[in-house]
């Protein structure tokens, strides 16, 4: 399924679209799930700014809240990379890496990776 980003919208070729409160900073198709990271402005607070979107244009999960990244309200996720089958590794502004199961949105691991 092809898709593209238009500011705060994820738009599929079949016409389905998902809108978010903030612009989309990054999105990646991980085995059938579009993992979307929202760009949270410095003046706004949103520590769980990652979503999993199905090809049908449905939000199937929002990343769960975890103390390692949610304790400080200025934190948000700012990057991602592949993390093995069905997994994505998210990079938080406070330099904590979080592994997420892209089917469920559940966090399976996390660690500090300063300056990575």
């Amino acid at each position: 399924m092809n898709w593209h980003i238009n500011n705060n919208e994820l738009i599929f070729d079949n016409g389905e679209a998902v809108s978010f409160d903030f612009s989309i900073a990054q999105a990646k198709d991980v085995e059938g799930v579009i993992v979307v990271i929202l760009g949270v402005p410095a003046s706004e607070v949103m520590t769980e700014n990652v979503f999993g979107i199905s090809y049908e244009g449905k939000i199937i999960w929002q990343i769960e809240r975890t103390p390692a990244t949610a304790t400080n309200p200025i934190n948000s996720y700012i990057g991602l990379r592949k993390g093995g089958t069905g997994k994505v590794i998210l990079h938080n502004w406070n330099e904590v890496a979080t592994v997420v199961d892209t089917k469920t949105g559940r966090i399976t691991d996390s660690w500090v990776e300063r300056y990575r």
């Binding site: 990057g79 990379r81 990079h91 502004w93 406070n94 330099e95 300056y115 990575r116």
Partner: peptide
């Protein structure tokens, strides 16, 4: 400055 391998932005 900030040094890194993959993540250009961060807290440190």
């Amino acid at each position: 400055v900030r040094v890194y391998t993959e993540n250009m932005e961060g807290q440190w």
